[in-house]
Each structure stands twice: as C-alpha cells, then as structure tokens.
C-alpha cells in the first residue's frame, strides 16, 4: 500500500474513532429505540412511553445528585439508602404521626440534607475516602431507618407497638406527587426535566458550577486560585442527599406505603446513569444532561426488554452492558483523558 493511502486510512480511522466517542452513545440510544418501536406494537403507544419516563425519573433524579459528587471528584454510595430513608420517613410522618403531606415531604428533604452534611463531615473534614465514608453511611441509614418502625413496613391501619391502630394514612396530596398529570406529562417526569435543567444551569452557567469543576479537575490548583475547596466538596454531598431525598419522595408516593426495602436497588442504577452520562457527546466529564440521557437509555433498554418478554434478570445484564459500552467510549476510544473516578 502506498504511504498516502496508508495515511488516508489512518486519518479515517481517527475520524471514525472521534465520531464514535462523540455520537456513539446517542447512536446506540437511537438504534435501540428505533428497533423497539418498529418491532413492538406496545412500545409505540404514548402511554407506554410516558410510563417508561415516569419509571425512569426516580433513578434519573437520584443520579443527578451523584453527578454533583462526581464533578468534585468523589462518589456518593449512600444515595439509594437515602431514598429508602425518604420512603420510611414520609410514611412514618403521615401514617404513625398523622401529619400533613407537606410537612412530611419537608421532613424527607431535611433527612436527605442531614445525611449529606454527615457525609461531608466524614469526607471533607475527617478525611475518610468518599467511597468508604458513604458506604458506611449506607449501612448505618439502612439499619437506622428501621429503628423507629421496629423493622416493619409502614402502611395505613397497621397495629402500632402499643396495640392501637395507626391514626393516619398517606394524604391525597402526597399521593398526587406521583399521579398528577401536567397536560399529558406525569409530574415526576416534569420534576426530572426541571431538576436536570436546574443542575445544568448551576453546573455550567454559574460561578458555583465553574468552581465545582475546578475542584474536581485539580484541587490543589483550585486552592491556590483562592478557592475553599472543602466547602465546595461538602456542598456536593448535601446536594446529593437532597436529590436522593426527592427521589425517595416520588418513590414513596408511588408505592403508597413505607416499604422498608424501597430504594435498595437504586444505588447501582443511579451511579450507573451518572457514569453513562459522562460519555454523552464525548464530554468525558460528569454533566447534568448526560445523566438524564443515560437514565433515558437505561429506561428504554429495560422497558424494551420487558415488553419483548425477556426474563427480569436480563435487565441487570443489559444495564451492565450499557455501562461498559459507555465507559469504553470515555476511556478506551476517547483521546481525551477521562477523569471522574474517585482516587480510592
């Protein structure tokens, strides 16, 4: 082969590679979506699509919180248990203490923020590596939330410790969080879009977001530019706790009772969508719309496989494959150096 031809082939290869890194993820999404649409009648109905989006919204919102911790170079493993805590707290407030839905929702947010603050203290000021601190918190929360409810799921008309019947129930208002439709769009989907927009705005358009990325990219250089690195890292964990709590609130409203196992499977999914999100458009960094698209892709895959009648365990295989393929775009094919994995 002549040298010129060789060089042309080489530059073709590089361009191919760059195209894959940029659009490979979106291409995979579109191809899968088209395949499901063409092959499955059910998949074509708007109701299927909206229920898919609704079902994905919780993972997506929790994943947004994880995105913030990844931006500062960390990772929050306690998000699934915080969402579960939200379910138990809201049920306890309404069913056992007969409080209003609004107050119960507020308490869920407070719980999420408190966990975030504790995570921040462990990681930023007590210098425990992110993964280990949040792993510890995950177990603590999973156990601690069962303490006031004696390890029982909380449902209306349950018998309490003193033999009486629980006085309250899930309020109608609270149940509307999951059920309300805005036009033809379910409220959780609207929340998902709004929160993604807010996160995107914070991370890319404000001073705060600029500093967050600086802290994640080079903490020492950020410090020498006058940034109080600790406070920004701490804020990421509080935001992560809040987003996880919002996810828990939607979940609680959907289940309509204080299921003690709720949220347990959320952690891996939420981390996965945030990781998948880094490869969207070859950005190579955690970002809000990427996380949203990552959640969407995983939602499409799971819904599609379910409709096609694959067994439930095929879902995990599919999620894992999506993650590995996405990471291949970021790490193997990209010529930029991907950097968002905590140093533990």
């Amino acid at each position: 082969m002549s040298q010129v031809a060789q060089r042309v082939q080489e530059s073709m290869r590089v361009r191919m590679q760059d195209w894959l890194v940029r659009y490979g993820f979106i291409a995979v999404t579109v191809i899968l979506f088209t395949w499901f649409i063409l092959s499955e009648e059910t998949f074509r109905q708007p109701s299927t699509l909206f229920s898919m989006l609704k079902f994905t919204s919780v993972v997506a919102i929790v994943g947004l919180g994880v995105t913030f911790t990844m931006v500062v170079g960390g990772l929050d493993l306690s998000v699934g248990s915080v969402a579960g805590l939200g379910v138990t707290v809201s049920a306890m407030m309404m069913v056992i203490y007969n409080l209003t839905g609004l107050f119960s929702g507020a308490m869920v947010l407070v719980a999420g923020a408190v966990v975030g603050i504790v995570n921040a203290i462990l990681i930023v000021w007590m210098k425990i590596p992110d993964l280990l601190a949040t792993l510890g918190m995950m177990f603590i929360i999973m156990g601690l939330k069962l303490l006031p409810v004696d390890g029982q799921s909380v449902s209306s008309k349950m018998i309490l410790r003193d033999g009486t019947v629980a006085p309250g129930r899930f309020t109608d208002g609270f149940l509307q969080i999951d059920r309300l439709m805005i036009g033809i769009v379910p409220l959780p989907v609207v929340l998902w879009i709004v929160l993604t927009f807010i996160a995107w705005f914070m991370l890319t358009r404000t001073r705060y977001g600029r500093i967050m990325y600086a802290v994640g990219a080079n903490p020492e250089a950020a410090r020498l530019a006058g940034i109080r690195v600790e406070w920004y890292r701490a804020s990421a964990y509080v935001i992560s706790g809040l987003f996880a709590a919002i996810g828990g609130m939607i979940l609680s409203s959907r289940i309509g009772q204080g299921d003690i196992s709720a949220g347990n499977s959320l952690l891996l999914d939420a981390v996965a969508v945030a990781l998948v999100g880094t490869s969207v458009l070859g950005i190579g960094k955690p970002n809000a719309w990427g996380t949203a698209l990552g959640a969407l892709l995983i939602g499409i895959v799971i819904t599609g496989l379910t409709i096609k009648g694959f067994p439930y365990y095929a879902q995990d295989i599919a999620k894992g494959l999506v993650l590995v393929v996405a990471l291949t775009f970021s790490f193997t094919l990209s010529r930029k150096k991907a950097r968002f994995v905590p140093a533990t």
């Binding site: 001073r207 600029r210 500093i211 990325y213 600086a214 990219a217 080079n218 020492e220 250089a221 950020a222 020498l224 530019a225 006058g226 940034i227 930029k336 150096k337 950097r339």
Partner: peptide
C-alpha cells in the same frame, strides 16, 4: 500541577480567581 486544569481554555484558567 499547580496552575492548570486538564482541557481548560485560556479564558477559564485566567478567570478562575476572579469569577
């Protein structure tokens, strides 16, 4: 190691202390 951020543009690097 102490002044630069991977892939950051000139304008981003310059403005960081004066956001």
């Amino acid at each position: 190691k102490l002044s630069m951020f991977a892939d950051w543009s000139i304008q981003r690097t310059v403005t960081l202390p004066f956001l």
